[in-house]
Amino acid sequence: MRVTVGHRPITGFAEEYRLQQSRYPMTPAGWQPVHTVYVPADRFSADTVATWGGQALELLEAHLPGPDELAEVFGVSADLAPGVHRRLLAKLEAEPVEDLRIDFEDGYGVRPDDEDGHAEQAAAAVVAMHEEGRLPRRWGLRVKSFADADPERSVRTLDGFLTEVVGRIGALPPGFALTFPKVLMENYLGQFSAFLEDLEKGLGLGPLRFEIQVEAPQTLPFLRADLAGGRLAAAHFGVFDYTAAIGLPPHEQRLDHPACDHARHVMQTAFAGTGIELSDGSLAAAPASSATADVRALWRRHAQLVRHSLAHGFYQGWDMHPSHLVSRFATVYAFHLATYDSYTARVAAWEQQRQVEGVMDEPATVKTLVTALSRARSALGDFTGNPA
């Protein structure tokens, strides 16, 4: 029997609950690219995506011709290898790049006499790709950091690029992404957001959101869901700047260093439930030569890092060489296909209130199973046939 006792009314709950839902929408995972391909602006053209795809296919055919070789190089089980190889071939032929970033920062360098021209050339290439239906599902550019003491150069490039694209097309093609690197001071976010607001008004654009790069320990303390007034779309980890900033020796600048694990876990903690996407960094290496042993050695190392990211809940990473496309997609496909059947069975068992091998999953685990299956279908895309 309940005994009612006097108490003060709970005031302000409805407003606080609305704030909770706004800040932590807990929305199901939608499509997120499995990688971002990073191309210096001076090397970018309308043929870049096709060139990368062609080079990746050549490497696949020369050094990974069939399922047996794939199983040996990537440690994929014999039953999964044929499906992974088939999907890998189809992916590289149809969509080798899911997310493209034209780089005007570290990969491009400081070129005050050239940057305006390269921004115009990059815009022209994007327009050509759009008109030919070859623009990746997500695409955009990385501007220079405000931390380099020249914010005017950063915003001038973005202004010139977008003005050219919108002027030629009449609108901004869907999928645009903007990367803001080296956010060492929280106020840089407000300053950059204010510029974006002015740019939106001047070009008649909808809200421009952006992703930040977490590249220094100074950034970790102010990671919050309300960063940049709702403009924040994603956070990407920058392994080389971060490991240099904390003083690691050069041979320890690697994605699977424990210090990088800590930074990524802080990012996960800060953005859990917010809908803000997370991406891991890159491997700054290419095959030492065209010899099969060297190409496969690169693939094995890259696959090891991709698996490390996936195991830590980072489902996207940066690729910096055509060879990385092979190891990226092969590892991602094998990762999701290895558990697809068992996850499906566990969800079905929970819905029917029965056990699988003596275990009844907790509701929180079932949510992660459903999310994992959704993420697997998203990553496998149209190249799956029947994923099960």
Rank of each mutant, 00 (worst) to 15 (best):
R2E: 15
R2T: 15
G6T: 14
R8M: 05
A14L: 10
E15L: 07
R18I: 04
R23F: 13
R23I: 08
P25H: 11
M26I: 10
V37K: 03
Y38F: 15
F44K: 13
V49C: 01
T51L: 07
W52S: 00
Q55E: 09
L59Q: 03
E61R: 10
A62F: 03
A62R: 14
H63C: 06
P65N: 11
G66A: 06
L70Q: 03
S77A: 10
A78P: 04
D79A: 12
A81Q: 12
V84Q: 11
V84C: 10
R87T: 13
R87P: 07
A90D: 12
A90P: 09
A94Y: 03
P96F: 08
V97T: 04
D99N: 15
D99E: 09
P112Y: 11
H118V: 04
A125E: 09
V126W: 06
M129D: 07
M129H: 06
R134Q: 02
R137I: 01
R138G: 00
L141G: 01
S145L: 05
F146M: 01
A147P: 02
D150S: 13
G160A: 08
G160C: 06
F161W: 12
L162F: 06
E164Q: 13
V166H: 12
I169Q: 12
G170L: 12
L172N: 08
T179V: 12
T179Y: 05
V183F: 01
L184F: 01
L184H: 01
Y188K: 00
A194P: 02
F195K: 07
E200K: 00
G204L: 01
G204F: 00
Q213G: 02
V214A: 04
V214S: 07
Q218A: 13
L220D: 04
G229M: 02
F237W: 11
D241Q: 10
D241K: 09
D241F: 10
Y242F: 15
A244I: 07
A245H: 08
I246G: 02
P249Y: 08
P249F: 10
Q253I: 15
Q253W: 15
R254S: 14
L255N: 15
H257A: 14
P258W: 15
C260W: 11
C260H: 11
D261L: 15
R264N: 05
H265D: 13
F271M: 03
F271D: 04
G273N: 08
T274N: 06
G275P: 01
G275R: 07
I276V: 11
S279N: 09
G281K: 11
L283P: 00
T292V: 06
A297F: 07
W299C: 03
R301A: 07
V306S: 01
V306L: 03
R307S: 07
H308Q: 04
H308V: 05
S309V: 02
A311F: 07
H312Q: 09
H321E: 09
S323P: 04
H324N: 14
A330I: 08
V332F: 10
T339G: 10
Y340Q: 06
Y340F: 15
D341P: 01
A345Q: 14
V347W: 14
Q353T: 01
G358Y: 03
V359C: 00
V359W: 10
V359I: 09
M360Y: 13
P363K: 05
L369G: 08
L369R: 10
T371W: 11
A372S: 15
L373R: 14
G385L: 13
